[in-house]
Design a protein around this nucleic acid. Structure first.
Lengths: 118, 118
DNA sequence: GCCACATATGATCATCTGTTCATATATCAT
DNA sequence: ATGATATATGAACAGATGATCATATGTGGC
């Protein structure tokens, strides 16, 4: 919060490095949005839900069975995934079929898995 | 935790869907690792640190100045990024120069930014 | 040895997160 | 309308998280 850009007390500054990085730096808002997106992906339950949906669309109780958690827990997590526009759904009677919103999740998971399994 | 695969009480199962997804499903351990990775990326301070390091290597106090948080806070966050093998460092005297560990961060950020800014 | 500097670590604490349980909403069948 | 099913929502509570402050470690210079 305290942006002391006059660098009171800080001594080991490498000026050109700092300036160069400052220029390319992303804004507070974008950094926040990015962090929110990754935070949404940063939970085992949500990872499993998304991975399950990578195979095919599923209803809530199918997801609950596949990943082994309560339907209520799944529903709560589906909401945060929906909020982040990571998934979408279509209604068929009283059943809601959930699916991935776009291809970004696949890309992110692919990159993530590469890093994790190397 | 309670894997009731005999589906006591659960009625809206679509058997073939569940079986098909089960086959392709990732293991508990991999899901956990993936979630941990994304969780490490899921904080504004760490996002800013990583983004800063995308431009060039930096020492701790430069990072602190660039992103506007205390050096202690930076140091704490650098540890979680190190633990996830997202960054590495080299020593030069009493200064530690931090940099990205590999190219996965760039890929993840690129995908993430695409999703966020669409 | 001593001191200053650069960074790391540990404790504390307020805030956030995810599950559970209870309850509400919406849809279909009778 | 009534009841059953599929899902959503709200409250509550334990556990995790991130900044701060104080302290410790490691390095170089004297």
């Amino acid at each position: 919060m305290a942006m002391e850009l006059d660098r009171c007390g800080i001594t080991c500054i490498h000026e050109e490095a700092v300036e160069e990085v400052q220029k390319a730096m992303l804004g507070e808002d974008v950094a926040g949005s990015l962090a929110e997106l990754f935070k949404a992906l940063g939970d085992p339950t949500r990872v499993k839900i998304l991975f399950a949906l990578m195979t095919r669309e599923l209803c809530v109780c199918d997801i609950a069975l596949v990943i082994g958690v309560s339907e209520s827990a799944v529903s709560h997590q589906l909401r945060v995934l929906r909020t982040m526009r990571l998934i979408k759904f279509r209604r068929e009677g009283r059943i809601l079929w959930y699916s991935l919103a776009d291809s970004h999740v696949r890309g992110l998971f692919a990159q993530g898995l590469e890093h994790v399994t190397e």
